[in-house]
Amino acid sequence: MRLIDSTLRDGEQMAGLLFTAEEKLRLAVCLDQAGVYQIEAGIPAMGKEEKASIVKIKENCRQSKISTWNRMLERDIEHAIDCRPDSIHISAPVSDLHIFQKLRWDRRFVREQLKRCVSYAKERGYPVSVGFEDASRAEWEFMLSLARMLKPLEVEFIRYADTVGILTPSRAYQVIEGLRRESGMEVGIHAHGDLGMAVANSLMAVRAGAAYVDVTLFGIGERAGNCDMRDFVAAVQKMTAEKFGGTPTVEAILALEKHCEPMLRRAGIRV
């Protein structure tokens, strides 16, 4: 099980919050030194400032892999490639709600577009992971068909995103175990705290074999936030005898939080 820190991407999307380029770099270097496996450094398509920030992060981090979050668009992948990350993450909305009402596409187009984008990045030599956005409201067979399509494309892993935070622990176990077993791929979990269960669901996902867990410092993120890194690591240490790589200690996370706290205060966010 490896931690993917999304403080600089999903965390920063919390309304009102902003990290300057210098702050992002400082946080990334601290995350790197703390031993976080992967840092999701930002969204290159946001513009040249964001891209420059990601490049700096890549240049200054020694251990952590640097990834970027991208929509399922070739132009977004091009922006990502400009940043020379260690891996490219492509987010694919998989629920009909997102496909038909947000994207105004259809399932077939999603399937073709995802294949195009993954191939585009892979052909240019980049490892790719794919996020199934709104997976917890998606039709299972469709999601599974996408996973099976991605396996021969040598996608590193699939991220099961509980985009609106509606999973319960037993359901989290079921879907992660099912997706792993039926697709034959490694799976990660991206949980939100709308029902206060982001940490519980992530823990259950790990029990079901999730290889990657997305976290943020203080659990910051959209609405009620994401899986809190410190709470998750503390729970893992307390409740399981297993040892994991790419996971900082609780003490190291406390030190990280001290770096992050002033930036939250500036945005009026109490933690």
Partner: peptide, 12 residues
């Protein structure tokens, strides 16, 4: 940002 009852959870 407390789940369900936090006054900021519907800010986007």
């Amino acid at each position: 940002y407390r789940a369900v009852v936090g006054k900021g959870i519907f800010e986007v």
